[in-house]
Simulated scan of single mutants.
Amino acid sequence: MPKLRTVVVVAGAAMLVRRAMRSRIQASPLWPMPALDHPTSGRPRSRALKLLVASRATVAEGVVQLRLEGRDLPRWEPGAHLDLVLPSGLIRQYSLCGDPEDTSSYTVATRLIEDGRGGSREVHEQVTEGMELEVRGPRNRFPLIEAPSYVFVVGGIGITPVLPMLRALGEGTRWRLVYGGRTRASMPFLEEVEKLGGDRVTVVAEDEDGLPDLDGLSAATAEGAAVYCCGPEGLIAAVEERFPQVRLERFTPRTSADGNGAFEVELRRTGRTLTVPADSTVLAAVRSELPNTAYSCEQGFCGTCQQRVLEGEVEHRDELLTDAERADSMLICVSRARSERLVLDM
């Protein structure tokens, strides 16, 4: 992933935030999924919608914005994301960066990742105006909470979930923004961000200014501030070190030094026991025996591969499940075992 820059926003609680909190709507219809050998447990899936790609625009170097039109679309709050089903069948998650009050369209933006897994390239090269795309959602795992003040640390394309938050906070709130990128030309929505913040915005273009001063930011942050970060792992790690209570939105699944060894997985219903090598995944092992097992993102974001855990201790590496869901289920594409053996209800 290209190296991203940093945005920091500090804002006081505002009436507009309360309005946004009251408007929260959880997607309740079931999300259609491919047939499984055995049913999975867990959260209901958002219903699928077919939306028209009404416009496509380049909003920064390497960044394409799509406006997807429909009718009576589910409302969303700042921080929400949408699942796009691409023409190839790949499912990728993109933060909504338009107007939450607009029920006729959704707006997303994606940066081309040259060495990525193909989703961003497909958006850039194959998604065109006039075609229909299936979408699922919206869902929000990065909500804007009510707090006395706010700090947002964002890298590059990570501005997309934060931009609607800035709009919602409005003029009556205290905030400061540091927005970074490789160059100013590579930073999407930079002009709007600067207009929103005025002298509260500090732009850090690496080719001109180097890296943002996170130590200085930490020292200047008021006690009780809600801290948000969206960006690549290097940025997230640096922010977590300085702000232990940070709320995060990741582009890639969480990694861990623990639980990287081989372990066994018993498929209770099937009556088979599999070995998951240190360099592979539960999903890969399961699909070697049950090839129709559903999966999609392989990053712990979409929830398609969620399975119920009957025995064993899981190291959860997903970015989707709640604590309650993690008590008896896992996303087998990224999560692993802390114990020597897991038993799945498959």
Rank of each mutant, 00 (worst) to 15 (best):
V8R: 03
V10L: 10
A13K: 09
A13P: 14
A14W: 06
M15P: 02
L16N: 01
V17F: 09
R18W: 10
S23H: 14
I25G: 08
L30H: 12
W31S: 05
W31R: 08
W31I: 03
P32H: 09
P34G: 04
D37A: 15
H38F: 15
P39G: 02
S41V: 15
G42V: 11
P44Y: 01
K50H: 07
L51K: 00
L51A: 00
A54D: 07
A54G: 02
A54H: 09
S55F: 09
S55L: 07
R56H: 01
E61G: 09
E69R: 13
E69V: 00
G70F: 09
D72M: 10
L73M: 03
L73S: 03
R75F: 09
W76K: 08
G79I: 15
G79V: 14
A80I: 12
H81M: 09
L82M: 12
L82R: 06
L84G: 00
P87R: 06
I91H: 08
P100R: 01
E101P: 08
T107W: 10
V108H: 01
T110D: 02
E114N: 11
G119K: 01
S120L: 09
E122M: 09
E122H: 05
V127F: 03
E129K: 02
E132L: 06
L133S: 02
